[in-house]
């Protein structure tokens, strides 16, 4: 101990420099690692456009026990099944594409799983049209397309590209009758998963829009995984 101490005293200058260098290396190393890791994350620009709901602030609003019932939700009464507007048979969607992002995905028809949430195609290179929402090209309401951002054993999904979507990007829906419906991205919002159902994403009336839904971080494995949905809204172009 005394020997070391003597040596230390003798070499104080050297040690200080060495220590400082090691400390600096530590800081630089950690910074580099963090930067490297961050680079793997989506280069997410800020969300844009009007929020997906006009009645409430999705992520920040206190969760009210009773959902707001929009006036158009009042039941309508029709006498015969054939009178329903839904029976106009808008062609079903077949393919989704966002040309600028090189995104192209076949569209499956999906419904509701036993847990009350939407079904999502297990293969993340495919997307699903929520078949109880209006088919794209309908006169009113939000046509919903869902897709995995990532899936077990299958890597990232096609909708991962929505992290790089910009206002004005063209979205094309190819339909089963061979026709195409064109949309233009107007908004992207990060919506608390708990608030999605009460947002306008699933409205059946009002302005006709296409709504693309996937998941987004933070990812908390102990709290059910992804905490938010990424909701991209596009409006039909004339």
């Amino acid at each position: 101990m005394s020997t070391r101490r003597t040596m230390s005293t003798r070499r104080t200058g050297h040690s200080r420099v060495l220590g400082a260098v090691v400390a600096l290396i530590g800081v630089v190393l950690s910074t580099m690692l963090v930067v490297a890791v961050r680079r793997d994350e989506p280069a997410r620009a800020a969300d844009f456009g009007p929020p997906p709901t006009t009645t409430t602030e999705p992520a920040t609003r206190p969760r009210s026990p009773e959902p707001v019932t929009p006036p158009e939700a009042a039941p309508a009464n029709t006498t015969e099944a054939s009178d329903r507007p839904g029976s106009l048979r808008v062609p079903e969607p077949r393919e989704l594409s966002l040309p600028r992002l090189g995104l192209r995905a076949p569209v499956d028809s999906v419904g509701v799983a036993d847990d009350g949430r939407t079904e999502v195609p297990p293969d993340p290179v495919r997307v699903g049209w929520y078949r109880f929402s209006p088919a794209p090209g309908s006169a009113a309401g939000s046509s919903v397309i869902v897709g995995h951002v990532d899936a077990k054993g299958r890597g990232l999904g096609v909708l991962y590209a929505l992290n790089e979507v910009r206002q004005g990007d063209r979205v094309l829906i190819g339909r089963k009758d061979g026709s195409t419906v064109a949309y233009e991205v107007t908004a992207r919002r990060t919506v608390d998963k708990e608030a999605l159902a009460d947002s306008e994403a699933f409205r059946r009336d009002g302005r006709a829009v296409l709504t693309l839904i996937t998941c987004t971080g933070p990812y908390l494995p102990d709290a059910g995984g992804y905490q938010n949905n990424l909701v991209v809204t596009a409006e039909a172009t004339k």
């Binding site: 961050r38 793997d40 994350e41 847990d115 869902v146 971080g217 992804y226």
Partner: peptide
């Protein structure tokens, strides 16, 4: 509206690491 959209599984897209 459905109760949610479970559209992510692994966390890879959130940086995963």
């Amino acid at each position: 509206a459905p109760d949610g959209v479970p559209a992510g599984e692994t966390g890879q897209a959130a940086g995963g690491n």
